[in-house]
Amino acid sequence: MKISLFITIIVLSGALAGVSLGLVNLAIVEPYLDTAIGIENQNLFASGEEEDTPEFWANYYSYRVWQKGGQLLAGAILGTSLGTLFGIVFAYSKNSLPGKSMIKKALVLSLIMWATLYVIPFAKYPANPPTVGDPETIILRQSLYLAFMAISGLGALGFYQVYKKINKKAIAFVGYGVMMVATFFVMPPNPDPVQIDSGLLMGFRVTSMIGMSVFWGVVAIILGALWQKTTPDRTAQAKYQ
């Protein structure tokens, strides 16, 4: 296997998909973020922590432009991060994934990883816009969310090993389902109350899910296409066949 090519196509596919995620978020999630931050600002004015002055708004708009630029940078970082995990799993599992082309195989895997690493954790700890989270509980909430992601991801990996070894394949799916239902009820809920307009909350969550779904689809298509085009494992085949 060509190591540099292998790493390059994985990092590139993750970064490009991450930038796509950032662009989608700028288009459809940012309006909800702006609305929620607007509520935070009104709360700051009401509590006397800030004054509603032209200077405040000038600083605010400048700061928000910087943060929206950060959306793209953070998208590239997050995309590269998740893309590397996707690439590792794809490299090990591509031969056992269904589908004739690498793109189809990658899409099947991305569907599995989207479900286990995003949708299932989302069911327990759904995305919330600004104003919902208490800064005092952020470390706890981050730890719970990442722990739930890890349990779901590692659980899927473990039950995949079971799936390969047993004849009754359904047992592996049932086992994973039982484990995640138990985890769902055992792990503590989000400690912060959600007290914002339900329309804003639902709109934010739906657009958030659209963005992440686009990411998992795009990373699969790009990595599958690049793998098919460059075949990073071709050297070994030519040498040993």
């Binding site: 999630v29 943060q67 929206k68 989270g133």
Partner: peptide, 16 residues
């Protein structure tokens, strides 16, 4: 945290 703030919220990570 502030630079990645919008992505944290949008990607489902807990934030403030």
């Amino acid at each position: 945290h502030e630079l990645t703030h919008d992505m944290r919220h949008a990607a489902g990570f807990p934030c403030h």
